[in-house]
């Protein structure tokens, strides 16, 4: 499982950091490193690009896991360079950005766009497997989530746009319900396709979501 990100256009990073010419740069050693959007190589490339734009990079660090609370201590270790900066440019997902934002008074600027929490299917190929809806229906859908895998998030079977097992919205993509149907057929559980699923209760986890373990 990874928090999937992509780099923002460089011009946008420059525009977001307008007038803030002394920069401290942060990458993330977990998801953004795996997805090659905010690891050491990308941070160094960003440093060079920022310098080419005339910015002063007061320092940089690739945190082991930017969203973790250890981040507080690691930022403290870089206190001098951080204090010299006018802003922090973060090459981590939005969780990392917000974690750093908790500890520093400086403007925090994301250099990445956060896309989704993805599961790796084959090396380098991630897909969204869970919409984190708070009411899991996988037990009745052959372990495939239609709320996530169907472009329309339908629960009661495929729309009329299925074409040879593919989705009309993206002909490269399998229709979620064709997959569910075939799987249930193999399991001898096609009766589940005939079951009516009532509307979801989105109040189960109201937004913004919060969970207290203790």
């Amino acid at each position: 499982m990874k928090s999937l990100t992509k780099q923002k256009p460089f011009d946008e990073v420059i525009q977001l950091s307008d007038q803030l010419n002394r920069v401290f740069l942060i990458g993330c050693g977990t998801c953004a490193t795996m997805t090659k959007t905010g690891g050491i190589n990308e941070v160094q490339a960003m440093k060079k690009s920022l310098q080419d734009e005339g910015k002063l990079v007061t320092g940089w660090v690739v945190l082991p896991m930017a969203c973790d609370e250890m981040t507080a201590e690691l930022l403290n270790e870089n206190k001098k360079a951080v204090q010299d900066a006018q802003c922090i440019i973060v090459m981590a997902c939005a969780l990392g950005v917000q974690r750093i934002n908790l500890y520093l008074p400086l403007p925090v600027i994301p250099a990445l766009d956060t896309l989704f929490i993805g599961m790796e299917k084959s090396p380098g190929h991630f897909f969204e497997a869970c919409a984190q809806c708070g009411q899991c229906i996988l037990g009745e859908t052959a372990g495939i989530c239609p709320l996530t895998a169907c472009h329309k998030g339908l629960l009661n079977g495929p729309c009329g746009g299925t074409d040879k097992g593919k989705c009309e919205v993206d002909p490269e993509k399998d229709c979620a319900f064709t997959l569910i149907y075939e799987r249930l057929k193999e399991q001898g559980r096609l009766d589940l396709m005939r079951k009516y699923h009532p509307p979801k209760n989105y109040q189960v986890i109201p937004r913004p979501r919060e969970s207290r373990l203790l």
Binding site: G157, C159, T162, G165, T178, Y181, M193, R194
Partner: peptide
Amino acid sequence: ADPFEYRVDRLEK
């Protein structure tokens, strides 16, 4: 649309 066999199930639903 397909799966063809399922289209009648869906109608029934």
